[in-house]
């Protein structure tokens, strides 16, 4: 499989690659400015479509709800048993019986439905959720994800993450491109215990947007953060990437 990929797809751009010169020109009048956490969530929100049923993970993915485009009807599912999350409540209408998967108090929007956990995960596993957005510790070049366990450290559990990556139609990861030590998180193979195999369709980081090419089983670099070069992405990514067309610049 690997030799096929290497044989037919240009994995690394040459020095003369057009995308590099474009990026270099960009750099000359735009200093490197990787995406902030808010920019990453804004970019993730661009993946939403009218009528989508979406599950947002805890942390950065939850913030995507703040950037749903005006006039777009998106339904947020919470795996503890609600379809149709509304805004946070006011102090007066807090209900201890109404929380999201992060255990935060929420409200239910008009048309919302509540249901049991078994029904909620039937919805997730059965392919009735259009998209989910979650964080990751590591992603492999074939789309495996590790995000629940570091051996030797306190294990908190996988919660609903394994079900979400196994059952949702489009799985998007938002994360920092490198870990706190500056090491790549997008690897040839994950070294941490997996959450799911070959399941991540898109990765949005502070440096770029990667989309899985399901035929080639490799991520394709489709967008660069303003001022970030193809070279920088390659340097900070261990996985083989497909870099064929000129990546566009992320706009948020």
């Amino acid at each position: 499989m690997r030799s096929m990929t290497e044989g037919c797809l240009p994995l690394l751009p040459s020095r003369q690659d057009h995308s590099l010169t474009v990026a270099a020109r960009w750099l000359s009048y735009n200093p490197p400015m990787p995406l902030s956490r808010e920019d990453i969530t804004k970019r993730a929100a661009q993946e939403l479509q009218d009528g989508y049923i979406v599950n947002l993970g805890i942390g950065m993915p939850t913030l995507v709800a703040n950037h749903i485009p005006e006039g777009m009807d998106v339904w947020l599912q919470s795996e503890n048993g609600l379809l149709g999350i509304g805004p946070f409540p006011t102090e007066e209408n807090i209900d201890a019986d109404l929380i999201n998967a992060g255990k935060q108090t929420i409200t239910a929007r008009t048309g919302a439905a509540s249901f049991a956990s078994s029904q909620s995960f039937a919805m997730i596993r059965g392919g009735h959720i259009d998209m989910c957005i979650l964080g990751a510790m590591q992603i492999s070049q074939e789309g495996d994800i590790a995000n629940w366990m570091i051996p030797g450290k306190m294990i908190k559990g996988m919660g609903g993450a394994m079900d979400l990556v196994a059952g949702v139609k489009k799985v998007v990861v938002t994360m920092e491109h490198c870990n706190r030590k500056g090491e790549p998180k997008i690897l040839k193979e994950c070294t941490l215990p997996l959450t799911g195999k070959a399941c991540i369709d898109m990765i949005i980081t502070d440096l770029c947007v990667l989309e899985m090419d399901h035929q080639a089983k490799r991520y394709k670099l489709i967008e660069l953060a303003p001022g970030v070069t193809v070279e920088e992405v390659i340097e900070k990514t261990e996985a083989e990437l497909i870099i064929s067309d000129e990546p566009s610049v992320v706009t948020v």
Partner: peptide, 21 residues
């Protein structure tokens, strides 16, 4: 848990719900 006083079996949440169902 860290002192091995407690045994823990982690199940994915949907698997846990379906096992009970």
């Amino acid at each position: 848990y860290l002192n091995n006083e407690l045994e823990v079996e982690f199940n994915p949440q949907g698997t846990l719900a379906e096992r009970v169902r």
